[in-house]
Amino acid sequence: MLASTLKPDLEQVPGRDTPVELVDENTGTLSQLDRQLILLTQEGLPLVSRPFEALAKQLGTSADEVKARFERMLASGCIRRIGAVPNHYKLGYKANAMTVWDVEDSQVHKLGQKLGTLPYVSHCYLRPRQLPEWRYNLFAMVHGKQKSELNACFREMTEILGDACRAHDVLFSTRILKKTGLRFRGDR
């Protein structure tokens, strides 16, 4: 039952990336040192004058090696970016909604990419439907300073999707109950 909601989606979609362990596309695997580096920095870099040197010391390697590994993980896409990770709420973006759309499969790739370029959309993903209870396959996170501001966003999105969209829903967030960085278990 649950297994059937989880696994088939992962297996049936052609061409999707295989869900993996900490794996690098080029080498087939991330080294022990890469894993340690991820574990050590998932809560952020140390805010000291020489952060890479500080990490190197903890890992028993050189700062150059640490920097080289970051470059490699950036190049492979394992790391998307390195920098300050802002908190939308604290910057005044207090209205946030998850918009979900039932978009015709034949057009969802083209239209999903269009939604993904909108300035107020922070994430836009294709996800599996869970029929009959859940008909939506396109998910887009929308951020604004006020709830009222978001209505114009929804209208624009509706226009872009046009007839290819059969239904949509907007799920406003009412509370953040937990928000932490990505965590991996360190026991592997």
Partner: peptide, 11 residues
């Protein structure tokens, strides 16, 4: 709390 951290964002 304006930023949660400074560091890598993993995929």
């Amino acid at each position: 709390g304006v930023i949660s951290r400074v560091g890598p964002v993993f995929n």
